[in-house]
Design a protein around this nucleic acid. Structure first.
Lengths: 216, 216, 216, 216
DNA sequence: GCATAAACGAGACGGTACGTCCAGTCTTGTC
DNA sequence: GACAAGACTGGACGTACCGTCTCGTTTATGC
């Protein structure tokens, strides 16, 4: 199982000054939990900072001392949900892919995950800093799954080793975009179920694509 | 060129009663255009109904008489952007796919399209009616491209005819989700460029996947 | 009994042109009745033109064709309530005064009368035309009661004949203002009951004032 | 000179809790002054909460935090105008009455006073709480003038001492209603000038009435 | 008897204000 | 100096009426 270390202190860090009352560590956890609860109940657009602070039993000031705004707070609040994805060895590349796709689809059934993910992506289209934050907190962290699956498949002989190592990253990115993008689109845009049958079909397509030879 | 008929009367339709002053048709066009302009300048989250009405030279009441809110308005405003996608015959399936992917990527470079699409999808995670609206106004309309490309490929002998006709729809949906989802994810989530090289790689993967034999 | 002719055609009169569909007489009555009903139920400030038109089964246009606005409409609607005041001969000046005071107080207990009277007076402080309309439609019409009561009292020998006829009007006005003003103030500003005991006390004060000799 | 203590905290009082930022005292003064200015310029019906807040340099929220609405705000804003009325000793009851009547008439020439007074009275016909507010903020406070004038007149021997003390309040109320009501009616309803001649006539009537013997 | 022309109902229109809600900041007293 | 509390400015919300307008329809007259 892959467990990544997370920065335990989210959002804005305090200056390294030493005097004064230290920040409450419990507050961070309470705030992030309250944010997830509020996302489930209210969704992104009706979630308010005041509501989160009230749920967390914390003053609004405390929120703004740690996060710049709703976007940043929500990214941090949902990022660790995505870290729960894992990739046990199911014996074959095909099984590994099916497993991770189903796992990802299940995550997207959680309202806080689906609404938060799309909302912050939408916001990030006009906000470079937010885009970076999403990438580092969510996207890049999950590429580990693709890397791991690929290494296993290569060890099993299901996939060839990349000759030109400079392309390794590109291929990883492509596979990641195909899997993540297709599942998100199926689940959230087309609004169709990601069930066993569909996953099998999709995986077959992907397997053929991957094994069809080195990309041009 | 594919030209689809659009529902000429967007949003909320007036009751079929015949009396009273008829609604201004010019207002609809002005409002949708103003919405797109505002999306470009302000983005989704800073776009306000009052601002749109002012740009369109129309009273706020007129907006609310026709659309239930910002979500519905924006869906209609951007839907017709997607109708501009087309699929001229480039001679081969591979070329057709590359063309439509590039075209789609170009559309997603328009700020009004990228921000609006993700925002309404985010909202639709808690709003069944909005989800239906997105599907009928945007998603389903663009599946025509997949259907057309596939028919051409079958005519050219690049793809087999589906034996079980009941699967035709499912395969169309899968291809659509893979193409649209992957491009959206690459462009908006991974924030990487959709350039010629990447398109060729992606297309190669897809071609192998499609030709690898009947799915399932 | 005093019955005054009222202008049967309220508000704005149509030009004396002869062709075209004539205005509905029934509409006028329905509108004024609807206005009074709405005043009772909603009061001045919540009464709306749209509501009146709906109650009267009439289009808003029809209202505006006949009255310039809410103020004018309401003045006309309540004016005739005040015409119902009368002054039967009760045998003495004192009894006549008591009778008319009680009658007036009773009128002011009607919500449409009290709210409409004060509201249009308030509006009239910034609207010369409305002030004139109130005066001609309401105030001046009721001075007849003072004139009649005074003539009777003079005939009975209870009051002297005014030697300087140029003062007759002034004295009428003064008595009118004292009676009407005091009753209105008691009922609507001080919010105290105008009952038999109070009326007797007030009348006694007034009697002494009137009989105390010619005003300086 | 009579100076009455005013409730320093108008409108809605904050809960007696002790935490949080205290309300700005300067805001109250600015708001009431802005309200009076707006009344002069716009009159009652065109005065808006938004306009007042803008003039006072204060957010609309701050207004609504302290006053329930336009009515309550205006009562407080004009109440202190009425507190400026005073009753210096002019040497005789007659002179005292003439003085206060002229003073009151002058107050009613101020547009903010005349329009506000009648408007809130009109509204109060359907609003018990507003009626109480008017009574405590305006009406009852000015009865002090009648009480004072009467005491002086009794000290001078111009008026008898009330034998039945339980009637003292009733007589005060009656005199107050007669004076205030008559002047208001003359000025605002009959729209006639309250000049020296009229005041002398009215005062003579009132003097005779008061000296004519104990009422009832 | 048939054209004329105004009145009529319906309801959309551009505006203005409403009273509420939330964002993000500031000002207290307490820890 | 962090914290809870809550008042602060500012701005958008969605609604309600205003008074005007534009339709199609109705209804007295006068040619």
């Amino acid at each position: 199982m892959v467990t990544a270390m997370r920065n335990p202190s989210p959002g804005i860090s305090p200056p390294p000054g030493r005097t004064g009352r230290p920040r409450s560590a419990a507050a961070d956890a309470a705030i992030l939990a309250a944010t997830r609860d509020a996302l489930v109940e209210l969704g992104w657009s009706k979630l308010t900072m005041g509501d989160v602070s009230a749920r967390a039993g914390v003053a609004k000031t405390t929120l703004y001392r740690r996060w710049a705004g709703k976007n940043e707070l929500v990214v941090d609040a949902v990022a660790e949900l995505f870290d729960a994805l894992e990739l046990p060895d199911r014996g074959s590349l095909e099984a590994d892919i099916e497993y991770v796709v189903l796992q990802f689809a299940e995550l997207l059934r959680r309202p806080e995950a689906r609404t938060a993910l799309m909302a912050v992506v939408a916001e990030s289209t006009r906000d470079e800093a937010l885009r970076d934050r999403i990438r580092s907190a969510i996207v890049d962290r999950q590429k580990r799954l693709v890397v791991l699956g690929r290494e296993r498949a290569q060890a099993r002989g299901e996939l060839p080793y990349e000759e030109d190592e400079s392309l390794t990253g590109d291929t990883t990115d492509l596979i990641f975009d195909v899997i993540a993008g297709t599942v998100v689109h199926r689940a959230l845009v087309s609004s169709e179920p990601v069930d066993g049958l569909w996953v099998a079909t999709f995986t077959a397509l992907l397997m053929h694509g991957l094994q069809g030879g080195p990309p041009a």
